[in-house]
């Protein structure tokens, strides 16, 4: 009998193998992140003082959008080829399998954003410690982005115009993560303590980890009825 850990391990391994064999998708999301963040200075001008002020917000918005774009890879392919149906009929509770899939998606889609984020921060002239906090904030905030985004992805499974609809459903729910993430970086850049915001980001991710899987599993079952 394969225990829950065994099933989670095989689902995570499966998704990471699939992501590894489709490396192009991961690069596309990261490139999107870089391009969106690089567009803002073109629109606002190179004035360093101004860029440093908007830097955290811009990097976070770009990370949010890149993370949301990657959500379609979470269920859509499995829905199309029938493997998602088998997951609904698995011996392990669906929310466990969903957690495994979101962990794999977080590793494949959001960890690259966490690594590239500080690089983009340099473009906006953020100081060294702010870049470190940016990476940490992204690492703490992106799990709730993946979890909340997965709810939206499960709800809009197989719908026409799913991409824009997913954005409409999910972006308002991303607002708290965006606010706290940017505040953390701005506080550090201004020499203040960023710890309260980082703790709140972590708290939100843990709350999402405990509540979202139920909603994702329910949404998947509804989409398959």
């Amino acid at each position: 009998m394969l225990g829950t850990a065994g099933v989670m391990r095989s689902v995570i391994a499966r998704d990471l193998t699939l992501a590894w064999r489709r490396k192009a998708d991961v690069f596309v999301a990261v490139l999107f992140f870089v391009i969106v963040a690089s567009l803002f200075p073109l629109g606002i001008g190179p004035e360093p003082q101004l860029l440093r002020a908007i830097g955290p917000g811009v990097v976070w918005v770009a990370a949010l959008l890149a993370s949301m774009l990657a959500l379609s890879r979470l269920f859509a392919a499995d829905y199309a080829d029938g493997t998602l149906e088998q997951m609904l009929l698995a011996a392990t509770p669906l929310s466990i399998i969903v957690i495994a899939k979101v962990i794999a998606h977080w590793i494949a889609a959001n960890i690259p954003l966490v690594l590239i984020g500080p690089l983009l921060g340099l473009q906006f002239g953020l100081p060294g410690d702010a870049l470190a906090v940016l990476a940490l904030a992204l690492a703490l905030g992106t799990p709730s982005l993946s979890l909340i985004g997965a709810i939206g992805a499960a709800l809009t499974l197989g719908l026409r115009g799913g991409g824009v609809l997913l954005a409409l459903l999910v972006l308002p729910l991303y607002a708290p993560v965006l606010i706290l993430g940017s505040l953390a970086v701005e506080a550090t850049a201004a020499g203040l303590a960023a710890q309260p915001y980082l703790l709140l980001l972590a708290a939100m991710s843990l709350a999402a980890l405990s509540l979202a899987p139920w909603a994702i599993a329910a949404a998947l079952r509804i989409s398959h009825e």
Partner: peptide, 9 residues
């Protein structure tokens, strides 16, 4: 993978 999902190693 199909066997793992069905709970059989």
């Amino acid at each position: 993978l199909a066997c793992a999902l069905a709970g059989r190693a």
